[in-house]
């Protein structure tokens, strides 16, 4: 067992030294064994990109339906991500920094929406916020039905995506060195100052990448949205819904929006990884 020692015995293995990464091609057998799955991921995405003729993509971009879907997706995902950060940060801090009975239960509860099929979330939201529910009837009195509105889209995204932010942020808070906060406290920093000048700056990469992941997930949300919010252009038809229905009537529209979503999601993931790499938590 050399687990305690430095990596003398492993120096000879290509690519195992984090300081000197090898190219993928030089990784030999391991690279070869990884290839099937890499190709499997890459194949369909490339096929889609190849199929999307630039001219057709540009033409679809000019269509009102495409623009409505993109603008609705941007508006709703920004709102749901902002809500995730606003409501999720205290919860993440609680989960990451405090020890209390039932913490594991609460943690599992928060993570539940990420493993549930989104269709289950959609049905649950419809029943909870629908016109026949207590919440729905209260709001009905105020004159705001929720189902089939943009608000329903935001709620569906919040339900599915916020847990990703909370989880990432909680991990960030948990990794924070307690002594730094204690030192600041000894120097007379109050609770707010400690949060503002110590905890938040140090966990910023985790919070940021959590928010980006939540945003990307919200952008791709489909199942809960189509059940809870329905499908109405400009009101509840987000990009994934427009892709699904476009597949049936306007294939180019589906291709165009798919290309945009693939590019955006890829950029988000790269960005998240870069932020983490530069400033490891």
């Amino acid at each position: 067992m050399r687990s305690g020692g430095k990596d003398h015995g492993r120096r000879a293995i290509v690519g195992s030294d984090p300081a000197r990464p090898a190219s993928l091609g030089r990784l030999g057998g391991l690279g070869l064994l990884s290839l099937p799955l890499i190709l499997f991921f890459l194949g369909p995405l490339l096929a889609l990109l190849v199929r999307a003729a630039p001219a057709a993509v540009l033409e679809s971009l000019g269509q009102e339906e495409t623009r409505l879907a993109i603008s609705l997706s941007l508006r709703t995902t920004f709102t749901s991500t902002a809500l995730s950060v606003l409501l999720g940060t205290p919860l993440a801090y609680l989960l990451g920094r405090r020890r209390f009975r039932g913490r594991r239960l609460l943690e599992s509860l928060v993570e539940l929406p990420t493993v549930l099929p989104p269709s289950v979330a959609g049905v649950a939201l419809l029943i909870a916020f629908g016109r026949r529910s207590a919440i729905g009837q209260t709001l009905q009195v105020l004159g705001t039905p929720i189902a089939f509105t943009s608000l329903a889209v935001v709620l569906a995204q919040l339900f599915i995506a916020a847990p990703l932010y909370v989880k990432a942020a909680a991990l960030g808070f948990a990794g924070l060195d307690r002594e730094l906060e204690q030192a600041a406290a000894i120097d007379g920093a109050n609770r707010w100052q400690r949060l503002r000048y110590i905890s938040l700056p140090l966990t910023y990469p985790a919070l940021f990448s959590g928010a980006m992941l939540a945003w990307a997930r919200a952008l791709g949300e489909f199942g809960a949205t189509i059940i809870f919010a329905g499908n109405f252009p400009g009101r509840t038809q987000t990009m994934p819904l427009a892709i699904y229905l476009g597949f049936e009537i306007d294939f180019n529209l589906a291709l165009t929006l798919s290309v945009i979503l693939i590019a955006t999601s890829f950029l988000v993931l790269i960005l998240v990884k870069t932020v983490f790499q530069r400033d490891p938590v």
Partner: peptide
């Protein structure tokens, strides 16, 4: 309020009273 992607979804949501 919505153009549902299949007819069964229309029935289900009307049956639910939504």
């Amino acid at each position: 309020v919505s153009y549902e992607d299949n007819v069964k979804a229309v029935v289900a949501k009307v049956a639910l009273g939504e």
